[in-house]
Computed example of a mutant assay.
Amino acid sequence: MSARDQLLVVIDPVARRTDGESVRIAKDVLSAGAAVRVCLPDGPEDFTKALARRGTRRLVVVGDDRALLRAVGSLHRDRELAGCALSVVPVGASQTLARGLGVPPGAVAAARAVLEGAERRLDLLVDDSDGVVLGDLRIPPVGAAEGGGGGAGVPAGGFGAEGSTGEGARISARAVSRVTAGGPAEGHPWLRTCQSFVRTLASRPSRPVPGAGRGPARLRIEADGVVLVDLDQPVESVRVTTVDGGLAQVEVRPASVGAEAAPVRVRAGTVTVSGPDFRYRADAVVAGPVRTRTWTVHPLAWGLTLPR
């Protein structure tokens, strides 16, 4: 039996919890066409160890976009990505990345592609901290609230926001006015206690609302050493997308002043973003804040099994 017919099927624990039926179908289809060894890791650490123990078997990941990213990132950090033809059966809520790469939807179709498909070499975007991007990179991180990237007191979807007195504090202030409008509080200890409590609420600033106060950022963006936008030009958004040919498509949308500013689009092998602290979304993962980050395209750095 050839190595192609021997599979190590690593099933992400999130996939097992969210859609056990699709996981079962994928295992049945794969087992009908190859010699399958199934691995059921309990968490990210076990997941990474399972990849290292694959031997000569072809690696198949059953899981969502995050499981795919975890597999590619782990293999890249171990410098084993170039020699590993990866296959994926998308199972879970997040499958946008896998489908965008050409993996067919549905457990049956994806499992058949693993058995009957062919390896396709793809470019990889790697940052200077060894993080990987398979699809696209966005600044600010679109959908950061869903990705869990927002920190305490930091708007998850924007560049930053100032803390301010919220609606609850304004209501409390009106309550103080109504209480004091009824006359002096002497002789009523309960009223003085109420007034003190309400004043405390009114003076306490509310927590910033995720996404509130989002506005243009001041960033310096360089593509292959050429400055596209500098700190004196506010930026609404930045998007970097991997494309064929060893280059990335870079799109910068400057903040409009009066007439709408035209986006700047170039292709480059390296992209550097620097400036005040910013967050970014790399595929399904929100990272940061950082002050500078450089992404470099690694041509044909990894292989994915896709339908012929």
Score class of each variant (00 low, 15 high):
residue 1 M to A: 12
residue 4 R to K: 13
residue 5 D to Y: 10
residue 8 L to W: 06
residue 9 V to M: 04
residue 9 V to L: 09
residue 10 V to C: 01
residue 10 V to L: 06
residue 11 I to S: 14
residue 12 D to F: 03
residue 13 P to W: 13
residue 19 D to I: 03
residue 19 D to A: 03
residue 22 S to G: 10
residue 24 R to K: 14
residue 25 I to A: 10
residue 25 I to E: 14
residue 27 K to Q: 15
residue 27 K to D: 07
residue 29 V to H: 01
residue 33 G to Y: 02
residue 34 A to N: 06
residue 34 A to Y: 14
residue 41 P to F: 02
residue 44 P to K: 13
residue 46 D to Y: 05
residue 47 F to Q: 09
residue 50 A to M: 08
residue 52 A to M: 08
residue 52 A to Y: 01
residue 54 R to F: 00
residue 58 R to E: 10
residue 59 L to K: 07
residue 60 V to A: 03
residue 62 V to E: 12
residue 63 G to L: 11
residue 64 D to V: 00
residue 66 R to G: 01
residue 69 L to H: 10
residue 70 R to M: 03
residue 74 S to Y: 00
residue 74 S to H: 15
residue 75 L to H: 13
residue 76 H to Y: 15
residue 76 H to V: 03
residue 77 R to C: 02
residue 77 R to T: 01
residue 83 G to M: 08
residue 85 A to M: 12
residue 85 A to E: 15
residue 94 S to T: 08
residue 99 R to L: 14
residue 101 L to H: 10
residue 101 L to W: 09
residue 103 V to C: 01
residue 104 P to C: 07
residue 105 P to L: 05
residue 107 A to Q: 00
residue 108 V to R: 13
residue 112 R to K: 10
residue 113 A to K: 06
residue 113 A to W: 04
residue 114 V to M: 00
residue 115 L to I: 08
residue 124 L to K: 06
residue 128 D to N: 14
residue 128 D to P: 00
residue 130 D to T: 08
residue 131 G to L: 09
residue 143 G to I: 07
residue 144 A to I: 03
residue 148 G to F: 12
residue 149 G to A: 08
residue 152 A to Y: 09
residue 152 A to F: 11
residue 153 G to M: 04
residue 153 G to I: 06
residue 154 V to Q: 12
residue 155 P to V: 04
residue 156 A to P: 05
residue 157 G to D: 15
residue 162 E to K: 14
residue 164 S to T: 14
residue 165 T to G: 10
residue 167 E to N: 04
residue 170 R to L: 13
residue 171 I to H: 11
residue 171 I to T: 12
residue 173 A to W: 07
residue 173 A to S: 09
residue 175 A to W: 08
residue 181 A to N: 06
residue 182 G to V: 05
residue 183 G to K: 15
residue 185 A to L: 14
residue 186 E to I: 14
residue 186 E to S: 12
residue 188 H to C: 13
residue 189 P to T: 09
residue 191 L to D: 02
residue 192 R to C: 05
residue 196 S to M: 08
residue 196 S to K: 13
residue 196 S to H: 12
residue 198 V to Y: 01
residue 200 T to E: 14
residue 202 A to C: 01
residue 207 R to M: 13
residue 211 G to C: 03
residue 213 G to Y: 02
residue 217 A to G: 15
residue 218 R to K: 10
residue 220 R to E: 11
residue 220 R to Q: 09
residue 223 A to Y: 07
residue 223 A to G: 03
residue 227 V to E: 14
residue 228 L to V: 04
residue 229 V to Y: 06
residue 229 V to N: 10
residue 230 D to C: 06
residue 233 Q to A: 13
residue 235 V to N: 04
residue 236 E to W: 08
residue 246 G to P: 01
residue 246 G to F: 03
residue 249 Q to M: 09
residue 252 V to Y: 06
residue 254 P to M: 04
residue 254 P to L: 00
residue 257 V to R: 15
residue 262 A to N: 06
residue 262 A to G: 01
residue 263 P to M: 11
residue 268 A to H: 11
residue 273 V to C: 00
residue 276 P to S: 11
residue 279 R to V: 04
residue 281 R to N: 02
residue 281 R to S: 04
residue 283 D to P: 00
residue 285 V to H: 07
residue 286 V to A: 10
residue 287 A to P: 03
residue 291 R to D: 08
residue 296 T to N: 06
residue 296 T to M: 09
residue 297 V to E: 06
residue 297 V to H: 10
residue 298 H to S: 05
residue 298 H to D: 07
residue 299 P to R: 14
residue 303 G to R: 15
residue 306 L to D: 03
